[in-house]
Every structure is written in structure tokens, then in C-alpha cells.
């Protein structure tokens, strides 16, 4: 599964610190993703993987550190960069985020309509090509409410790749899907990479899916990068937290009795 990477990073994150109010969620994340790579970001609940994704998408303001996407500085202070980079990236959200007032076809065409001056026929053909790619041929005129969960995710994938992005982000592709549909979606991600050589970042907590599609995996824990490595390297890691994750063992939390009592008796404020 491991592939030789070309060596030029399209995503570079350095010392990223992100928080909500006083609470720091990401504490100095540094990572880089090479062009054409499928990088899976894993971690349990509260590990900060969703916050990392939202920071990478420019949806969450960062406290310090830097993010470079496609060689451009990418955060709030640089709206022009953000707009340029965003035209070259696609995002498939966890719930699909399809617009309920539009048909599936209109949803997928929206980026084309907003960013290109193609005529209706060309747009329709391009929409159908992407629908064929995600096995949704013939569903163009249905409303999102008429689709099943897996179909919504595939339609969202089709929308995210309509402009042939250089970067594709995928938030929890397997969440809420049955194992078969989930496996199909994994195949689809591999197929998309095969067809377009897009760099793909997948955020997930599904182990099987991660091991199947990843070139490299970054494991997050409590807002820090525990490890980045190929599937083999992750499997062979002797870090207990990573082994716990691989073998689905519950976390062993070291409990401070005094702290515990203090939490129980603390007044509300």
C-alpha cells in the first residue's frame, strides 16, 4: 500500500496551536503531506482531529503557528490566498453538507456555476462524469432528502471533486455507514486518487478504513502528534497509546485521587 512520495509537500503545518477560549485543543502540531499522498489523520474522541481539519480548511482561527497549503500561507489574515487555494481544494463533509433546496445535480454543479463560465451542456456533462465516478449515475434530478446516507456521502464526494482539486479533504467518510458501504467508499477514495493524483487527507477514527487507504497515517492524541508513519510503521509502533488504538483497548487513565475529590466537590461557577 505504501507508495513512494514525490517529496514536495502540499500541506505544511508548523507548530500549530488552536484553542477554544482558554482551552488549548491543538498543542504545537507539525506535519507535512506530500503531493499525491493519501494521509489519514487518526485519533480518538477529543484528540483534536476535527479541530485540525477545521484549521486546515480555514474554518477555525489559529492561535499561533502556520499553515501552508499549495505553498501559500493559509489563514484568516490572508483572504486572497485562502480564496485562491480554496478554488483548488475540495471538501467532503461528514454529513455531506448538500444544499437541501437543490437537486443532487445542482449541488454538484454549484462550484462550476460560481467559478467557471462553462455553458449548461458542458456543466451537465461534467456533473454526469463525476456522478458516474461515484456510482450515482441517474440520480442527478433527485433531492438530497431522497438519498440514503451512503449516497449523500458519495454525492458530496462528487461535488468536492467537480473542479478537479489538487487537495481533497474527507471528514469521517465511514461515520454512520454500514461496513459494506464504508468499504465501497474506501475503494472510491482510492479510485479518485488513481484517476486524478489528488492529494487526499482523510480524518477518521475507523481503523480498518485507515489501514486500507492510507499511504501514511498521523495519529493524534490529546492535541499532539503521537506518530506519523506508514501503515507498517504504525502497526509496529511500541507506543502504548497507538497499540491501544490498534487493539481497541480502553484507555488507561491515571487517576489522581485528590484531583478526583476536588472535581466532585467543586462548586459550580
Amino acid at each position: 500500500m505504501t507508495q513512494a512520495t514525490s517529496g514536495n509537500a502540499v500541506i505544511e503545518v508548523e507548530n500549530l496551536v488552536v484553542g477554544y477560549g482558554d482551552r488549548t485543543v491543538l498543542n504545537g502540531i507539525t506535519l507535512s503531506v506530500d503531493s499525491g499522498e493519501i494521509r489519514v489523520i487518526m485519533g480518538g474522541s477529543g484528540s483534536g482531529k476535527t479541530t485540525l481539519l477545521r484549521s486546515l480548511l480555514g474554518l477555525k482561527e489559529i492561535a499561533s503557528g502556520s499553515i501552508h497549503l499549495l505553498g501559500k500561507k493559509f489563514h484568516y489574515g490572508y483572504p486572497k490566498h485562502m480564496s485562491e487555494v480554496r478554488r483548488q481544494m475540495g471538501v467532503a463533509f461528514q454529513g455531506g453538507a448538500l444544499f437541501g433546496s437543490m437537486t443532487v445535480g445542482e449541488n454538484i454543479r454549484l462550484p462550476l456555476r460560481e467559478h467557471t463560465r462553462l455553458d449548461e451542456n458542458t456543466m451537465r456533462i461534467m456533473t454526469r462524469i463525476k456522478l458516474e465516478l461515484v456510482n450515482l449515475a441517474g440520480f442527478e434530478d433527485l433531492m438530497p432528502s431522497e438519498l440514503s446516507g451512503g449516497m449523500v456521502k458519495r454525492a458530496a464526494l462528487a461535488r468536492s471533486i467537480i473542479l478537479d482539486p489538487k487537495l481533497l479533504f474527507f471528514d469521517e467518510p465511514s461515520a454512520g455507514l454500514d461496513p459494506v458501504t464504508s468499504a465501497e467508499l474506501d475503494e472510491l477514495i482510492l479510485r479518485v486518487r488513481g484517476a486524478t493524483r489528488t492529494t487526499i487527507v482523510v480524518v477518521t477514527h475507523e481503523l480498518d478504513s485507515a489501514l486500507k487507504i492510507a499511504d501514511r497515517i498521523t495519529v493524534l492524541g490529546k492535541g499532539e502528534v503521537l506518530m506519523t508513519g506508514t501503515v507498517e510503521e504504525i502497526r509496529n509502533s511500541d507506543d502504548s497509546r497507538i497499540q491501544d488504538m490498534l487493539h481497541r483497548r480502553p484507555r488507561e487513565e491515571d487517576q489522581d485521587p485528590e484531583d478526583y475529590l476536588r472535581r466532585l466537590t467543586a462548586k459550580r461557577h
Binding site: L57, G58, L59, M82, S83, R86, R87, M89, G90, V91, F93, Q94, G95, A97, L98, F99, L110, P111, E114, H115, F169
Partner: peptide, 21 residues
């Protein structure tokens, strides 16, 4: 509902200005 179902985030990520659109 568009906000909580990430549709506004999706617009921003598609470089479509939600204020304008």
C-alpha cells in the same frame, strides 16, 4: 440549519462567499 449541518462551511470551502450568495 445550514450553519449546524456544515452547509455554510461547505460554501466557504468552495470559495463561495456566504454573505454574497
Amino acid at each position: 440549519i445550514m450553519r449546524i449541518s456544515e452547509q455554510i462551511d461547505a460554501l466557504e470551502c468552495m470559495a463561495i462567499d456566504p454573505y454574497r450568495y
